[in-house]
């Protein structure tokens, strides 16, 4: 009796649902119809979200467009020779970017030279040797270095690092390595070497955190295998870890290079801002980013402004290339592991 009754009531409900007109519509149907379809809202929401994520491409295109438009006068006037010309003389209208390119390359490469061994040392220490209770605090501290604003680094460099360079480190280098010719001339404390040191301090956290990330991605079995063969800890790190992580480490180094190339404020405050090419590292220099920072707001004349815009364009293209390369290398190693924001 009972099954029979259930079937008949289900039938009744189904026929009521299908009937639509006539009879009373079911409660569910009235509720669903009353609320309307969510297809439109869903589609709109989805497209809105997509539009916002596409804004990333719009931003890159906008920067490129503004820079190309702004620098067209300079590109037209000087052509490719702009990047090879050594004179930068706004008064007579001669603009060449070579001293800035030179300064940027030398300061960034010197900074890498100092930062990379230290960064790898920190990463090795943190992943392979550090006692567990210390690991958290130390990695937090190194990441704190990345949170300090550039201008505060600059302030510290101007009042602490520059006097230190002038009175202690500089004379010492002159005495011991003066014969190489890299540490000659008048040592004012400001100059290429000081800028490189502050740059090295600033790019260290990013290199060491990427290195740490790729080193943690190396499977533990690699380490165990090396140790089982009788390797010492250093041999284990060299054979089992660094060798496997090398592509990722190179990626981290290139990422650091990208940071160093575009770093503006701290470098501007200590590099001396003089468009010259000197062999001595005590001599003042100038970088692409700092010439923009210093001269952009007082640039008189369209060509002057346009030349500075072209320097900005060069900086933009170079950092885009460098960063793209670095990301690809890091992704190649940590693929599978969840991505992290640097």
């Amino acid at each position: 009796m009972q099954p029979q009754g259930m079937v008949s009531s289900a039938d009744a409900a189904a026929s009521a649902l299908e009937a639509g007109d006539g009879g009373s519509p079911s409660l569910i149907r009235t509720f669903l119809q009353g609320r309307g379809s969510s297809a439109v809202a869903d589609g709109t929401f989805r497209n809105l979200m997509m539009l916002c994520s596409l804004s990333i491409f719009a931003i890159v295109a906008f920067i490129a467009w503004e820079l190309v438009k702004g620098s067209s006068a300079s590109i037209h006037e000087f052509g490719f020779a702009f990047f090879r010309t050594e004179t930068w003389d706004p008064v007579s209208g001669e603009f060449g970017a070579w001293p800035f390119i030179y300064g940027t390359l030398v300061s960034s490469l010197l900074a890498l030279l100092m930062a990379v061994p230290l960064a790898i040392g920190v990463a090795v220490f943190l992943t392979e040797m550090c006692p567990r209770p210390l690991r958290g605090p130390i990695s937090f501290l190194t990441e704190l270095l990345a949170a300090i604003p550039s201008v505060v680094y600059g302030l510290w460099a101007v009042f602490v690092l520059v006097p230190l360079m002038r009175d202690h480190i500089g004379p010492f280098l002159l005495k011991t390595l003066g014969w190489t010719g890299f540490f000659g001339g008048y040592n004012m404390g400001i100059g290429m070497l000081t800028a490189s040191i502050i740059l090295a301090i600033m790019i260290l956290p990013i290199i060491s955190s990427i290195t740490r990330e790729v080193m943690t991605a190396v499977p533990i079995s690699q380490r165990e295998a090396a140790l089982a063969l009788g390797a010492t800890r250093w041999e284990m790190v060299r054979i089992g870890v660094l060798r496997n992580a090398r592509i990722g480490i190179v990626g981290g180094v290139i990422l650091g290079l990208g940071r160093a190339l575009g770093e503006t404020m701290a470098v501007t405050m200590v590099i001396g801002n003089s468009p010259q090419i000197a062999k001595s590292l005590f001599a003042p220099g100038y970088t692409l980013a700092s010439v923009i920072a210093n001269e952009f707001s007082e640039a008189t004349g369209d060509l002057y402004l346009s030349a500075l815009m072209e320097i900005g364009l060069a900086l933009f293209l170079v950092t885009i290339l460098v960063n793209a390369l670095a990301r690809l290398l890091v992704w190649a190693v940590t693929r599978g592991a969840p991505a992290r924001v640097a």
Binding site: V60, G262, G312, N323, A324
Partner: peptide
């Protein structure tokens, strides 16, 4: 592509952002 571009854009020097907005 969005993810990659966002990471690359993160590395563009802030001064470049400054002059682009100046021009705009």
């Amino acid at each position: 592509a969005v993810r990659f571009t966002a990471d690359v854009l993160n590395g563009v020097p802030s001064i470049v952002m400054g002059i682009s907005v100046y021009a705009l």
